[in-house]
Design a protein around this nucleic acid. Structure first.
Lengths: 349, 349
DNA sequence: TTGTAAGCGTTATCAG
DNA sequence: CTGATAACGCTTACAA
């Protein structure tokens, strides 16, 4: 019983040998067809193609993996506190590889672990994925990227700004869109706008804050530094920063929280002060996760195109392995635009 | 250059042959050690173990996959509209396989697609995972399970009630805990309690509604059928059902929404009627997703132990491949208990 | 343009 | 209990 016989039906899964025999060519020729080699006569190509169709042959990824020293999967590496973000990104990636033979392996890591690099190396050299998608914030770490290079594994870094050359990153334009939203608040007449910053040590909080400051500078309005509070992207930190800002004598008339979860905390802070949103206070967030439309009032926020970024990143990463279908999109595209979503917590018009 | 030489360092990744040579045994013996065969003398076992440690040898999963016709990964099959649920489950699974050599492949499917089974078969026979974790609601489908059996792939069904024999399922006790929570509302004096049902055609909504009805029956209170509204587990349906219930002449004094997202919709409905929660209306949900603590007021709900279920399911699924570490938990455990989480939207004491 | 032979790194068979 | 030998299904030299 040499090959993968099907227990119940007695059918045998066709292998490259069966195809070769039926087409009357060598297995190497079939292999060439599978790998889309250009060195084939149209006649043979046709014969092989017909035989494959007739047998319903599907190349065995495990065998290819062994021969090619490369598994037919892509990996998602992340240490992201926000589940919704990871999930939305994952959705985009899966959409991109839906019709391919690729699998998606998800690998959460702990960025605070001293074993981080060792663990990632173990994972990568074990699974040997075709490529790795690295999510923020660990996408900012050069040591992880160096590891990928050393292991000769393709990688794609995701970030709030371009973190690498166009072949290796996908980014959103956080700074520009925060600038836009802040400018809209200023144009409405707000002068005392609070800002809740994200965690220190990462890039996206820096970008978002920079956009906020840019808007003040460009509008010629002086920014009151004491209205900038520190958060860490979690709900509780938004609640706390919101309480601090709203407890001041001259409380702000609007608060920009640099993500939705903190914005949701700010809403709770407003309630605890008996303030009505948006009448007494306008609140805006960033991300447009499910939270944004489930809080009361619904949150005016920035749609962070994380799903679309996942799709683009996966496309770029695997394009070389899927030759052909790459025409639909631009391999050099790096930035996926964010946009403002106006809901109830702040009216912009 | 026969083997996997490391480009930069010139080091060579050790293979089973290197181990065999160093230990002075045949590769088959090393293979026996790797596969934890009991047919080995302690002396050889020791020699091999030492050689492996010395070389830092790690078996190549691709080669094993080819020989064993089985990939070293487990797959998660789902068509779940709730991202948070999928993600929490995933967290549990990853915790279970964290220290193993296994990868987790995520596979969302479309249960409404006529190609569903074909697609799943293509995926499974391609990737040949060690096992499949099937999430609700598709875990209820026997055709998918039959497919797994035919392909000889281990499976584990997740559900709101035991869907299979103990070796093949993990379940929560939705009916019992809804009974408990409803009883608590009745004990507080509520008589007109609205209920927002989940989508038709699935098991968990049936279980949750049954628990609700049980409580009325056991408490000897007559249930007003017109207070039972239909939802579909989405926010909007909760909003709509909530509006319908609250627009009645004799509006309910409490509403049990069968998941948090719909409960959140009910809260919005209450606001739109100018009702204050929990003073004018008490609201409870089910799931205890992040939403529950981010809405205002925070939601009294049932903690659905989806993460723990993921952990248990993965443990049970892979226990046979990871011999040894299985002592810590009970392989026959099926039910993971849910429990009530009291927050602000309903006070139970 | 095509085919032959020799791997890829592991496990199964079956004899010792 | 151990080991030679032949798979597993595909790809990469290297010829032809």
């Amino acid at each position: 019983m040499p090959r993968g016989d099907d227990k119940l039906s007695g059918q045998t899964t066709p292998t490259i040998n069966d195809v070769a025999a039926l087409a009357g060519v060598s297995k190497k020729t079939v292999s060439r067809f599978i790998n889309k080699s250009s060195l084939m006569s149209d006649a043979t190509r046709d014969k092989v193609s017909r035989a494959i169709k007739q047998l319903g042959y599907v190349p065995n990824p495990q065998a290819r993996a062994l021969a090619l020293r490369r598994n037919f999967m892509i990996a998602m590496l992340h240490d992201n506190p926000n589940g919704q973000t990871v999930l939305n990104f994952q959705k985009g990636v899966l959409a991109a590889i839906k019709d391919s033979e690729l699998a998606l392996a998800v690998r959460p890591v702990d960025r605070t672990s001293p074993e981080l690099l060792v663990e990632i190396e173990a994972f990568l050299s074990m699974q040997r994925p075709l490529g790795v998608l690295i999510l923020p914030p660990i996408s900012e770490r050069d040591d992880i990227v160096d590891l990928c290079k050393r292991l000769d594994i393709a990688y794609m870094r995701i970030g709030s700004t371009a973190l690498d050359d166009p072949a290796h990153c996908v980014a959103s334009n956080d700074r520009a869109v925060v600038h836009e939203l802040t400018t809209a608040l200023l144009a409405k007449g707000h002068r005392d706008i609070g800002f809740v910053r994200g965690p220190e040590g990462f890039r996206s909080p820096v970008e978002r804050e920079a956009g906020f400051r840019d808007a003040f500078a460009d509008s010629g309005v002086t920014l009151d530094e004491s209205l900038i509070g520190q958060g860490n992207y979690r709900f509780d930190s938004g609640l706390e920063a919101g309480r601090a800002l709203l407890g001041r004598k001259n409380r702000p008339s609007a608060i920009f929280a640099s993500n939705d979860e903190m914005a949701s905390g700010v809403l709770h802070a407003a309630y605890s002060f008996g303030l009505s949103v948006p009448d007494d206070l306008e609140v805006v967030g960033f991300d447009d996760t499910a939270t944004a439309s489930h809080v009361w009032p619904t949150l005016t926020t920035v749609h962070w195109p994380i799903e679309e970024m996942g799709r683009l990143a996966a496309m770029k990463l695997v394009s070389e392995f899927l030759g052909g279908t790459t025409d639909e999109f631009d391999l050099d595209q790096v930035v996926v635009d964010s946009y403002i979503v106006e809901r109830a917590s702040a009216r912009l018009t």
